[in-house]
Design a protein around this nucleic acid. Structure first.
Lengths: 219, 219
DNA sequence: CAGCATATTCAACATTCGTTGAATTATCAA
DNA sequence: TTGATAATTCAACGAATGTTGAATATGCTG
């Protein structure tokens, strides 16, 4: 799948870095911790990826392409199956979220760690704007356009604030902090992406409809 | 307002630590950066607060009491003004969110930084569960009970997942990453808490109603 | 096998980190 | 003013960090 055949050890480095960066953030992880976790000398990370920041970016970008393609494909599919009026709000949000769930269902722990890393970055005042925009803005704007079609007459401001709420709910889910587990005394599980999206889709869809379909109010 | 008269310089240390921790996280900040920002020798932080982790906790706990009281007071007030049936979903969520906005309206930059720090902690897989529960669980559970009253027949699982979505939307708002500013090309501003809550309240209220008021579905 | 490029380790560097104990200054009651 | 207590700075430590250049191992090509 990847462009140039990667040495197995450099992939191990990326895997471990992905896991640790997602858990502790950029500054909370040491190159030596990564190297140790990968069973490798500390200099090897520098050899393959350069500076620590370059490694961080490499981890972040490794799966971005595949993720964007999966979500875009889901959007296209739901647009095709929908009639000429385009998909409903629920269908668009479903296309936005479900690909993330499949990533977990494969049992690939790496994907789970990667999504937690995205949550870390997206919620960080320092990294958020700089890193997310470059890789995900184009796709996100396409989803927002699809939502606009499903919500005729929606104002830009309302549309973007609603997306903001959706993005926040998703981000906290991806972070997998375990907080909802404790709050709900075990009735909800952070690790259960399926249940999270089963609730998030009708929840946010109702929010979009209420905020973006409101009759015109006084300015 | 505070219990024991604090030395002015120790408050400065807390202020700077609050700002830097919110921006870069626990590991992304150095005691020397904090000391320099506060115009103080590096040893002074240790003298007043002990280890770095103790300083982190001190920052986190400094405003927690006042914040909890403000939100609890808002909940009590809306419960009193409501009839015997209790406040509506919208009113409960309003009581949950608006006190955070007032904190910003005072122009106190410290509160804004503090809320961003909460966002950092709440979204962190490492800190999230450990630190949030101790200080905020009791209040949050009280709000959830108020929401339950407003949503008769709601199932526990649905109620907590809905709160999870609300918490995520709020967390991303508090983080103030500036991402929505860029996505919306300036139509939405991360710094405008007022606008964020104006949209978040009807958005999440509609979500609660839809998910928690649904007819009983097949198991 | 020889040769070469790539991959990996080894050893070491200058810096920076959190922390501490001693020295100095400010505060303030007696 | 004196003396004591708290606040602050000074100086330094050992440990850990990111990075680099040289040395070694590995794998591939001819």
């Amino acid at each position: 799948m990847s462009r140039k055949k990667p040495s197995p050890k450099s992939e191990r480095i990326l895997d471990v870095a992905e896991e640790l960066f997602a858990l502790h953030g950029y500054d909370g992880v040491t190159l030596r911790q990564i190297a140790t976790g990968a069973g490798v000398d500390v200099a090897l990370a520098s050899y393959h990826f350069g500076k620590k920041l370059d490694l961080f970016n490499a981890v972040f970008e490794r799966r971005a392409g595949a993720l964007n393609e999966a979500r875009l494909s889901a959007l296209r599919k739901c647009q095709e199956s929908a009639g000429g009026e385009g998909p409903t709000v629920e269908q668009v949000i479903e296309a936005f979220l479900r690909p993330l769930e499949i990533a977990q269902e494969t049992g690939d722990k790496g994907w789970t760690n990667y999504l937690a890393l995205i949550a870390y970055i997206n919620n960080s005042p320092y990294w958020g704007e700089k890193m997310m925009s470059k890789l995900f803005d184009k796709l996100v704007l396409e989803f927002i356009e699809a939502l606009r079609r499903a919500l005729p007459g929606a104002r830009d401001e309302d549309l973007f604030w609603c997306y903001h709420n959706l993005s926040g709910a998703l981000t906290l889910t991806l972070a997998q902090t375990g907080r909802i587990d404790k709050l709900s005394a075990g009735k909800c599980l952070s690790s259960d992406f399926r249940a999270a999206y089963d609730h998030m889709i009708p929840f946010t869809a109702a929010g979009f409809r209420r905020v973006c379909s409101a009759e015109i109010t006084a300015n």
